[in-house]
Every structure is written in C-alpha cells, then in structure tokens.
Amino acid sequence: MEAIRVTKFIDPLPIYTMWLRQIKRFLRVKSRVASSILMPFLFLAFLGLPLSFIPGLKIGGMNYLDFLAPGIVGMTLLFSSTMSGVSVIWDKEFGFLKEVLVAPVNRFSIILGRSLGGMTIALVQALIIVAIAMAMGVKISGISGFFLSIVFMILTCATFTGLGLIIATKLSNTEGFMSIMNLVIMPIFFLSGAFFPLQAMPAGIRYIMYINPLMYGVDGLRGALVGGAAFPLWLDFAVLLVLSITLAGLGAYFFSKMEAD
C-alpha cells in the first residue's frame, strides 16, 4: 500500500479527482449543457434585444441590451454556482460523495475540488453568455475590462457556491431542494440590479439591494464589461472578496462537519 497522508489539508490528487468528476458529469449530460445556456440566452434574445429596439429607451445611460448583458452573466453564475453547492445533498444521498466521505481523505480537499469543478462549469457558461451577448451587438469596453470581469465572475462563483453549500449542509433531505430555488435564488436575482439600475431606485429598495451579494457581482461585471457601474469597482471587488471568503469558508466548514450518513 502506498503511503497515505491522511491529515493533509490540501491534497492535490483528490482535489483534481473531484474537479474532473464534476466536469465529466456535466459534459456527459448533453441536455444539461444546452439548458444551462438556454435560459440566459432567452433573456438576452427576448427581453434585452427587443427592448433595445425601442427608440429613445436608455437605461442607466445605455442601450437596454448593453445594460442587461452583465446582469444575465451574473444570473448564469448565480444559478450555476448555487446549484453546484446545493447539489452536494443529492450527491451525498445517492452518489459518489457518500463513498468519498468514508475515504481517508481530508474533507476540505474533497469539497474544494468539487467546488472548483462547479465553478469552472459556471465560469465557462458565463463566458459563453458573454460571447452570445457580443454576437447580439453588445460592445465590450476593452480587453482589460474583459479580464477584470473574469475576476468578478470568479468571486461571484465562490460566493454562491459557498451559499449553496451552507444551504445543503443545513437541509436535512432533498425535499426542500426546489423551494430553495424560489425562496433564495429568485429574490437574489431580481434584486441584483440585473434588470434595473440601483441608482434610480427609491431608498427602501436600494437598502435591500445593498445586502444582496449578487448586486456587487453584477455591478462589478457591468463596470468591467460595459461601464456604468453604481459603485467604484474597488468597492465591488472588496465587498465580494470578503463575502466569497466568508461564505465559501463557512460552506467548507459545515461540509467538513457533516455526517457521512
């Protein structure tokens, strides 16, 4: 038997394995690959594009499609990452994870690998949406803005994967899974400023939006991709950085305390 370093906190091989497994699983289910892109595409094609045809309609000082595109990228990240986190519960009950949890491997490495896999998928989806938006005529402000937007994407992913994990480890069974979608994800999405600019809202709504993590993600993405952010980008970055570290850390902590069965 080979030497096994059980206590190792960061264990590359299991991390890589969990990552690879997430990617392989995703790619294997063709319908999932398509449907993950479909919803954001529909928003862009049937909400953003038609509204951008209305003469004189400017939102946040720009064409509505340009305004909406970063929001839809944020939505893609939100849905994909939260689901990747929450689906731990499914995996634990019916899948691979149950077996992995009794292996002599540090839990942190397992969840890190799995989360990185989910984040990679979310990131690729978001980049595809950016490409689709560009094909529809959204003008990206520049190459540096594009790379900056990737930083915001990664932080947004980490934040919501963490949130998903926290929810998953606190849910006792799979039955509550779908209500999570409605109770948590939808309000976060609608109050993220994806559809309307924060600056134009009355104070009450603004304050609610201030506590929404996705708002900072969408704002940062908007600032980086097309301009017109409500906050300075360093502020969006700082808030997201703190949130992503806190939520992802908490998620990983709860996961490591979770019972194997």
Binding site: E2, A3, I4, R5, L13, P14, Y16, T17, L20, R21, K24, R25, R28, V29, F96, E99, V100, A103, P104, V105
Partner: peptide
Amino acid sequence: FLTGRENLDFHGRIYH
C-alpha cells in the same frame, strides 16, 4: 453518469 472504469479510476485517485 460515469462509466465503470471512471468510477474505479476516481476511487483509486481518492485513495492516492
């Protein structure tokens, strides 16, 4: 969703 070989292969990796 994975093949038998992938399942075995992943298991092996997890066990270093």
